[in-house]
């Protein structure tokens, strides 16, 4: 096949841009709020060219006032619009915590009004960006009833889940992993597709052991699985995709098959998403287990800056392999 006919590969960040662009085109109620998203095209260039196409009334540049414009997005959503907030780094979502947790998350419960707002931003480490540009905030919000939390780990899901988030009538937090932005590529379906929020996906089938993971750690898990295969261990990789709601069935079905489970997550260890999934397996899949449920995660520390520190902090393929070896002994 000549290069000219080779199907075009899309990067993770391009998939996000495409989802936003297509939803802005599809629905006139969709608009964006965020810092530097207009003329500059966003800190990571997710919205490059958007201002020219959609104009300043739909790509609205905001002053540095995250709590203010997250609250505004909630207000506009309550009036029937479908706003998308870009927080420049997911870390800065903490400035809008009150609005998300107290206003957005509890509104439908009290008044049955839809709050179709999406708050998205680049999360995660690996870019030597230090404690304030590298955090994984999904666990903070997965603990708040009323919110949905998405952390896509593949190019396909980055696009399909963002579209689903924009069409959802609930407040959805969408954390895209900035380490993946330009590092992973995929040939996407030509026809339009939307993923289902709340459905995990088996990204690699295996029979000896299950790794439950999400986000950038999906790639780490797949690499570890490949390495383990060479050593004769068949690893199944379950990608949660949505960290709330958690797709229990897919997790429990996999564990029923393999009898062993590793929780792999980039967030800090204590009370992380993997800790919750471990509890689900312990409670509902106990009879299937042939060994302990092992957590491979970041330690309970802020995300450090210096490369040796950050490499120690973020789970690496070798850390996963060590856990696989440990669990294989059972």
């Amino acid at each position: 096949m000549s290069t000219a006919n080779k199907p075009k590969e899309t990067s993770y960040i391009e998939a996000i841009s495409q989802a936003l662009w297509e939803e802005l085109e599809r629905d006139g109620n969709v608009f964006m709020l965020g810092e530097d998203i207009g003329y500059y095209g966003g800190a990571f260039k997710v919205t490059e060219g958007f201002l020219d196409k959609f104009g300043p009334e739909r790509i609205i540049e905001m002053p540095i006032a995250e709590e203010g414009f997250i609250g505004m997005a909630i207000g506009a959503a309550l009036m029937g619009m479908r706003p998308i907030v870009e927080v420049q780094y997911a870390d800065f979502i903490s400035c809008g915590w009150d609005q998300i947790v107290n206003v957005a998350a509890k509104m439908h419960y009290r008044t049955r009004d839809a709050v179709p707002v999406v708050i998205r931003g680049p999360s995660g480490g690996g870019l030597r960006a230090g404690p304030f540009h590298s955090q994984s905030p999904e666990g903070w919000f997965a603990h708040v009833p009323g919110l949905k939390v998405i952390v896509p780990g593949t190019v396909h899901d980055a696009k399909g889940l963002l579209k689903a988030a924009i069409r959802d009538d609930n407040p959805v937090l969408y954390f895209e992993h900035k380490y993946l932005y330009r590092r992973i590529k995929e040939v996407l379906p030509e026809e339009e597709y939307v993923c289902h929020i709340g459905a995990a996906k088996v990204q690699r089938e295996g029979s000896d052991l299950t790794i439950v993971t999400y986000g950038a750690m999906v790639q780490t898990a797949l690499q570890a699985a490949e390495k383990a295969q060479a050593g004769g261990v068949s690893v199944e990789v379950v990608d949660l995709r949505t960290v709330f709601p958690i797709d229990k069935d897919t997790v429990l079905n996999s564990v029923a098959k393999t009898s062993k489970a590793i929780m792999l997550y980039e967030d800090t260890r204590t009370l992380g998403i993997g800790a919750e999934v471990a509890a689900i397996i312990a409670e509902e899949g106990f009879e299937h287990l042939d060994g302990p449920i092992i957590r491979v995660s970041a330690p309970d520390a802020p995300v450090p800056f210096s490369p040796p520190l950050e490499d120690f902090f973020i789970p690496q393929v070798d850390d996963v392999i060590a856990a696989i070896d440990r669990l294989s002994a059972y």
Binding site: I60, G71, M72, I74, G75, A76, D98, Q99, N102
Partner: peptide
């Protein structure tokens, strides 16, 4: 005043 931003957003929608 949590509804100061929220009402401001409603006004933006209008």
């Amino acid at each position: 005043p949590d509804f100061y931003p929220v009402a401001t957003g409603a006004a933006l929608a209008f």
